[in-house]
């Protein structure tokens, strides 16, 4: 089986680096599955899970804010934050989810709704990845 090299890097350091058979990411324009030999592409990503398939197993990495750069033999995901399933602090994510939920529910004028929504999405994404 052909593989493609996948790197996930964040400003705080590299998160993931391995050879993978198939990567699927959630791009702004929809889900994107990448196999080795893909044409060069750049696409912004949504907050979501990146799925990395190898030897019949799927690994998940929670990614928020960033984009994917694809070359035939190399996929790079540049994210502002990324965590592998083991790296996620479930309790913290859960606390963050509750905080964001409360902020959305309170609906006072000074709450930044968009920010709260994004925070909620990030927390849900982390919980989702950590749960599997």
């Amino acid at each position: 089986m052909k593989t493609v090299k996948v790197n996930i890097v964040t400003p705080d350091g590299p998160v993931y680096d391995a050879d993978i058979e198939m990567v699927s990411v959630r791009a702004e324009s929809g889900d994107l599955g990448i196999l080795p030999g893909h044409i060069p592409t750049v696409a912004p990503l949504k907050i979501g899970a990146v799925r990395l398939k190898k030897d019949g197993q799927t690994e998940m990495v929670a990614v928020s804010g960033g984009f994917v750069e694809v070359r035939p033999d190399h996929v790079t995901i540049l994210a502002q934050a990324a965590e592998t399933a083991e790296g996620i602090d479930k309790e913290r994510a859960e606390a963050a989810r509750q905080r964001a939920q409360e902020r959305l529910n309170s609906q006072s004028d000074d709450t930044d709704i968009r920010r709260a929504e994004l925070a909620l999405q990030r927390a849900l994404n982390r919980l989702d990845v950590a749960g599997k």
Binding site: N7, V9, T10, P11, G13, P14, E69, T76, L78
Partner: peptide
């Protein structure tokens, strides 16, 4: 550890 990110971007 920031260098690879910066280089890439």
């Amino acid at each position: 550890s920031f260098v690879p990110y910066m280089d890439k971007i």
